[in-house]
Design a protein around this nucleic acid. Structure first.
Lengths: 145, 145
DNA sequence: CCATATTGTCGGTATATACCGATAAATGGT
DNA sequence: ACCATTTATCGGTATATACCGACAATATGG
């Protein structure tokens, strides 16, 4: 037996839930050779249309150095490319054809998992969850919704 | 401006919220030289009273190999020790005096942050959040609360 | 225009986390 | 007692993530 202990610490419970949710999405992504974190990046790059590392960092609220490293993995896998921008400092990100194709295919599996989890949350659960997660962030002080 | 993009992906939003909550707790832990993840481990070890790695893994739902590595960090910091158990395979974990003292002191700061975040969630928010996080986990099928 | 600040990226270092395979020790069935 | 299985841990490897300091390039105030 020895059931898992239900910690009362918000961080601990969030980390646990995140690990588990990640694992579920990751397993669905396996056949595409990517992780859910990587799919998220691919989609954001596509949406932003040739963003710089910093722009991607602002959109995702990830550290730029983290993204630099994450992007190297995607680059090595041939899913993204890094081209010089106007500014001689900046490098501009975009998806390769392969990256584009994989993103499309992975999106189908993402849909499945997302729907499953959404129904687990019950009616209104999805919106409530996101509202509560946002409430934890002091940066989201003023404007809700 | 370039506001952060509110992804609709449950995993992405969970990861983001977890990063931010971790950062808040971690900053409060800084003065004690530990992270919130480490405080969580110290408390669990204390509660379980000389658990093995595997017992700790079951309680935390973390991979045993992950815990092995996490524990080495705490051991090197002199907060925990690893002693031989009855079974010649197993090693039993416990807090050193220093680890015990730091856990006590860190708990005070944990309290502060936990209360702050709890009040951010509003009335009933805390319970609702945990209930929703649990609902995401297929392992929690049968028994709720 | 130049000195200073700011911006964009990268490398070093560190924690948190997982999966897989090795290895050693215990357990169980015959 | 013996062999097969299961258990406990560890090491290799990989991703995700952050902070800090270096460095180059751009922007800005006087």
């Amino acid at each position: 037996m020895a059931e898992p202990f239900k910690s009362v610490c918000i961080s601990t419970r969030l980390r646990r839930a995140t690990r588990k949710a990640n694992a579920i999405y990751d397993h669905a992504m396996e056949k595409h050779g990517i992780t859910i974190a990587q799919l998220s990046l691919l989609r954001t790059i596509r949406r932003l249309e040739r963003p710089t590392l910093n722009q991607l960092a602002q959109a995702t609220e990830l550290d730029a150095s983290t993204l630099g490293r994450n992007m190297r993995v995607l680059e090595k896998a041939g899913l993204t490319r890094f081209e010089p921008g106007q500014d001689k400092r900046t490098r501009v990100l975009s998806l390769t054809e392969k990256g584009d194709a994989i993103t499309d295919r992975a999106n189908h599996d993402w849909d499945r998992v997302q729907s499953d989890l959404k129904s687990r949350l019950g009616p209104g659960g999805f919106d409530t969850l996101f509202q509560l997660l946002d409430a934890l962030d002091p940066d989201n002080e003023g404007r809700s919704t």
